[in-house]
Design a protein around this nucleic acid. Structure first.
Length: 156
DNA sequence: GCCAACGTTGGC
DNA sequence: GCCAACGTTGGC
């Protein structure tokens, strides 16, 4: 699950009460379908920082509430307002996620792209802009296996 | 800031 | 339903 850290980063999630928050603002139908139809409590997700100097995977979250209507779409004051969504027929959905842990290091996109085990992921494919993408168990493990590689020079 | 890639909109 | 124009994403 991607988010721009300048807008909402993993530190903000970790600072929430119960380290839990709703994942608001997704306005893409393919991503919406995953939020609404596929993600279930207990599912794990990676937190990916996008559009920043160190884009990459930064941590792990757990889905704690399945898809439900994204109320920010109903709020004219919200930057995520969409007049075509209304409470009777909500167009956009979100899930609740809980911070689990940060990774020992940020795994940068360049490393993800260089890992043959991830060649089939949507994340590393050209031009992909989806903010929520599925991973197979093997892909998930391949990413976590990279956590301890080559990252010991960056002191915390 | 640039720009390629992609999704959405709307005229026809 | 086609498709050009436009807006957005996001790496670099």
């Amino acid at each position: 699950m991607k988010s721009e850290p300048a807008v909402y980063g993993i530190d903000e999630l970790a600072a929430q009460p119960l380290q839990t928050d709703h994942w608001e603002g997704v306005r893409n139908y393919q991503a919406r379908n995953m939020l609404r139809d596929e993600m279930r409590p207990g599912d794990l997700a990676l937190f990916y920082h996008s559009k920043c100097p160190r884009s990459g995977v930064v941590g792990i979250m757990e889905v704690v509430r399945a898809g439900y209507p994204d109320h920010t779409a109903f709020d004219p004051e919200s930057k995520y307002y969409d007049p075509k969504s209304d409470p009777d027929r909500p167009r956009w959905h979100m899930v609740d996620v809980r911070f689990e842990r940060r990774l020992a290091r940020t795994i940068p996109l360049a490393e993800l792209k260089a890992n043959p085990a991830l060649a089939d992921t949507l994340l590393v494919q050209r031009g992909n802009r989806l903010s929520i993408m599925p991973l197979t168990p093997a892909q998930w493990q391949a990413i976590l296996d990279m956590e301890r590689e080559g990252g010991f020079t960056a002191a915390l």
